[in-house]
Structure formats: structure tokens, C-alpha cells
Amino acid sequence: MIMADVIMEARDLTKDFEDLRAVDNLNLKIRRGEVFGFLGPNGAGKTTSISMMVGLLRPTSGQVFIDGEDVNKLEKGTIGICPQELVLWEHLTPRESLNLMGNLYELPKKESEKRTEKLLSDLFLTDKANTQVKNLSGGMKRRLNLALALIHEPEIVVLDEPSEGLDPQSRRVLWNYIRALRDDEGKTVILTTHIMEEADKLSDRIAIIDHSKLLRLDTPSNLKKEIGEGDVVDMKLSDPKMNQEVMEKLKNLAEIEAVTEVDERINIRALDAVGKLPVIMDRVEESGVQISDLSVRQNTLEDVFIDLTGTTLRE
């Protein structure tokens, strides 16, 4: 990776809150113009990492550089952040809120108004532009939350759990907008999420974080390849106490790549899992136990996460 491609770099970033280490020695580089996903369960340290990377939170140790410059010396306006919570002024209207932020980012008045109208239109808020925020729906508030991060056309857009609480339709609008930010406007988008599908579909590269540590950083396809190609057979036995015995028998099968226990279910990863189902079921029946639930699906980031941490993503 050549330096000009790197827009943001975290070096040895650590954050302690009294006895709790929220981020442990984070090192990563984010490329200009990519959608970079932070994937991890709630409490993994994603928001803390982001807060330090945009200069809102002082690290216990380590540094953050943006375009090679310390984030604390950075000219304001390079970054736009859409926080996880709705950070809005309830008694202002969307138009007033956007114009306020435009003014505070020192946009010329006409430019601010033009940008405001475009964002209101792009995010389907024009009809409610003069309605006080307190009277907007949850989805509208979330879209305004995003618009406020974009009013000054920042080079880096940070979206912290942007889909939280959105219905599927609003989520689709948001995802399309995030893609457009990258593809049409050339923005660098940093996205934190605990939703696998969101990370998988939007991110060019993903950093998997759990318990304050960076576990892996790669493209979604490479991450999935890392744990092997193929499908996953997800099975639940009538008697979960038999899981270990059954898993031992399955591990001996040459056709099986990996067997793991997740939330009292057995996950079996194998190429052409459907073709191998008769053999798998024979081995289970040999143990004298019934299968109460069974499904076959493609390898996902969830499986990558399970492989790395031994657990599912905690909600």
C-alpha cells in the first residue's frame, strides 16, 4: 500500500477507562475512497476506536494520523461523523439544523443552502424540512443524523452503526446512499456495525474486533476464504448433551473441514455439504440421538467470526 493511498492510520492505539481496556493496541490503515467496516459485537470497542480516530476522545496511548497529520492538529471539517445515537436538536427543523452546521463549518450561505436542499432531497426529507425534529419518525431522524455528517462535504465520513433501528426499506435507502458516497463522490467511508450482512455488502475491507482487540483485517471474500470454501450445515440435536460425542465422530470424516459448537448447535463446514448430508446423518444416528433442526447455508462472515472467537456475534 503506497502512502498516498492511506488516508487514516491508527498506530498502537489504546484506551483504558479505569480498570477496563476498551481498545488494545489497535494498528490499522484505511485507504482513500474505500468503505472500511469495523465489525464486532456491541461493547467490542468499535465506537471507542472511532471516537479516538476522529479526535473526540483522547487515547491512553498511541496516535492517529489523517493524511499523515496528527488528528489533533487537523483542520476541522475533514471528517463528518454520524453517531450511533440520534444526535439532533429536537426543537430545530431539519433545514435549520443543516443550515446551522453549514454555518459552523464556514460554508458560504448560498453554498450551505444549496447543500442543505440537496441532502434533504437525497435523503427524502424535503417534505418534512420545516417540521421540528421532535415530530419526525425514527427513520427520518436517522436520515437527518446522516445528513448532518455530510453537510460540509467531508473527505472522511464515519458512520457508527448507521442501520440501528431502521426498517428494511430505510436500510436499503441508506446502503445505496453509502455506496453512492464512495462511487460518485469519492468519499472514504468508515462504517461500524454488528450486522454481518451490512459489513459484507458495503465494505471493501473489514476489521473484525472483539474484546478490544483487532482480530483480522481483510476483504470480505478473503476473510471467508480464510476459513475455507464451502457451505455450513447448522444442526440442533434433540439432546444437546450429546453434542461433544457427535462432534468427535463427525471430525473423523474426511469430507468435513471443521466442526464447531455454537449456542448448543453443531456447525459443520464442508464443500458440497448437501451431497454429504446422508453420511453426516448416518454418523449422528449411530450416536442414538435425533436431529431436531437442520439447515444448510453458504459460508458467511458470521462463520468467520465464530471461527475466530468461538462465539456468535453478541447482540
Binding site: G55, K76, L104, H152
Partner: peptide, 8 residues
């Protein structure tokens, strides 16, 4: 925090 990120 939102205001702090601006040039205010």
C-alpha cells in the same frame, strides 16, 4: 460533540 467537530 457534533458542534466540536465543526469550526466553532
Amino acid at each position: 460533540a457534533r458542534l466540536k467537530l465543526s469550526k466553532m
